[in-house]
Write a protein that binds this DNA or RNA. Structure first.
Lengths: 234, 234
DNA sequence: CTGGAAATGCGACCCAGGTCACATTTATTG
DNA sequence: CAATAAATGTGACCTGGGTCGCATTTCCAG
């Protein structure tokens, strides 16, 4: 990597904290950083070509990236998952070598490490331990996805929104950190509904005294009420 | 395993064909069979206790098992996935060691290999190659789950039913093999809807000449029409 | 063969949540 | 700092699909 020592330290530090690489030796991690290059992606950077991830693997250092599919019938995107710091993509193409029919887009400014797939595969040859870590990573994501599905079928849109907010409140600031800066359209895509619905629910949450909004930022004013909405669904 | 040679051959044969163990040496596979015991589960056998899979791992030799959660609000189960020959469970508890909040139930008579978790973990210590195979297995399931989600949000119940049928037709018999013997309730659980809806749609499919039913068996009479329903959703 | 349980068929009704249309506010950029 | 685009607020309306109730059929166990 052609970067200053400071920056390099910063990356190694981030990688060392990443559970995926915690079992990897310092040397091996250095080798990995050797074949990686840092990239800065501004908000709304897209990977629209699903074959792209056949050749390049990414590790997210900061920011947020959504993985989504497009719903032609309703002419709107549906976000399948949200990736943030320490997440990687695309594990499916890395392991199965087949195209993963999914698009990626940054939801805010994002830093990634970019690794050519063939070099990564070589590196993995010598560091088969990552399989175990990746497996843990994947089963974990899988369980989240199961929860997402139950949610979709069992709860109505207002509760899905409430849960989305609840799952992302920063207890310190009462702000919904990773969702700040997202439009109602984006929020809708995250819970499988429309901006109209999101807007209506946010309005009624306001009236109920659960939250207040300002310049595309959501602040929870009464966490308990929000919690109630999720658990005691009448 | 305390079983006759014939039966033993049959199991090894099945395991050898299982992609999860295709990279495992004969010796190692024998060792695995050594710590496994065969079990026969009649239809409707349940694993209702989620902590059970902390201690026991299963490999399905034949039959079908559903993994489901219960929807208290609507008082009905929701099937998250269907497991059949060569599937295993529960990978999540094996890898993460935490309880996986999910229940299992056989949908028909089923044969499984039962392996005590701690013995399996020992075996894996000496056969770390399975991590790679398990990872492939898991990412594959993951992608199916992504498709399930898009389906849930993008398509209405009739198309979801049509797709369920289409994905399981046996081109030889035109029968919907693995779904035969399931009640409308079970079918509903598989696509996240109610028996009423399933019933109505099956009726209208009949009228459209897509299928006919007899004694809880579904036979597709016009595959093309079914295909159309899935692709040209108006 | 038979009585009860389970599975299915079907009509009446209701509502969450989608669409459409348009006004209003907030960002962004020549 | 317009002016144009993007994001949001809101009302009117429609419909897929859920619930309820009950009749009918199919399946088994006794």
């Amino acid at each position: 990597m052609n970067i200053g020592l400071e920056k390099y330290r910063y990356y190694t530090e981030l990688m060392r904290e990443n559970d995926l690489f915690s079992d990897i030796s310092h040397d091996a991690l250095d080798q990995l950083l050797e074949i990686a290059s840092a990239q800065y992606w501004p908000k709304k950077t897209c990977i629209l070509d699903p074959t792209h991830t056949l050749y390049t693997f990414y590790i997210i250092l900061s920011g947020k990236v959504k993985g989504y599919v497009f719903d032609d019938k309703h002419d709107r995107p549906l976000t399948l998952f949200l990736l943030t710091q320490n997440d990687v993509f695309d594990v499916f193409t890395l392991i199965n070598g087949k195209v993963h029919d999914i698009r990626y887009e940054t939801l805010c400014d994002t830093e990634v490490l970019r690794i050519p797939m063939y070099k990564l595969k070589e590196w993995i040859q010598d560091n088969q331990d990552v399989y175990k870590a990746l497996l843990k990573y994947t089963t974990d994501k899988m369980m989240r996805m199961e929860n997402y599905i139950s949610n979709l079928i069992m709860e109505d849109t207002s509760i899905r929104l409430a849960r989305l907010l609840y799952n992302h409140v920063d207890p310190a600031s009462n702000q919904v950190e990773i969702l700040n800066g997202l439009t109602h359209d984006e929020l809708g895509a995250l819970i499988g509904t429309t901006r109209t619905m999101v807007g209506r629910h946010i309005q009624s949450f306001k009236e109920e005294g659960i939250l207040k909004t300002e310049r595309r930022e959501i602040e929870i004013t009464n966490l308990e009420l929000l919690q109630q909405k999720i658990s005691l669904n009448p």
